[in-house]
């Protein structure tokens, strides 16, 4: 039962981050600020969700898989954000 409460709190907090990130994508004016909202919020949000779910995992192997998913998503999101940002900067340079 305490584990359920921890899960609810952590996953709830994670959803808040996802909500904020989504609002940022829709509301922020240009690519770089949108990227900022997306990567920061989603990485922390996913981390909170994973931590929350880890309290429901039946064994340590499942926790390991969850952590691996988070690590992979972090690396992929970080790399993609860098690439999108560089492409956006190059487009800015050519349009000016």
């Amino acid at each position: 039962m305490p584990a359920d409460i921890v899960t609810l709190v952590l996953c709830g907090a994670g959803l808040v981050f996802f909500f904020a990130g989504t609002a940022g994508i829709i509301r922020f004016p240009d690519t770089l600020t949108r990227l900022h909202a997306l990567t920061k919020a989603d990485n922390v949000g996913l981390g909170l969700l994973i931590t929350g779910l880890a309290f429901q995992a039946p064994d340590w192997q499942s926790v390991g898989k969850l952590v691996l998913i988070w690590a992979m998503a972090l690396i992929a999101a970080g790399t993609t954000a860098q690439l999108v940002a560089r492409s956006a900067l190059q487009q800015q340079d050519t349009s000016q």
């Binding site: 992979m72 690396i75 992929a76 970080g78 790399t79 860098q82």
Partner: peptide
């Protein structure tokens, strides 16, 4: 660059 690093990091997994 980051893509080259990503390309070295991910393939084993």
């Amino acid at each position: 660059g980051v893509l080259a690093m990503f390309g070295r990091l991910l393939p084993p997994f």
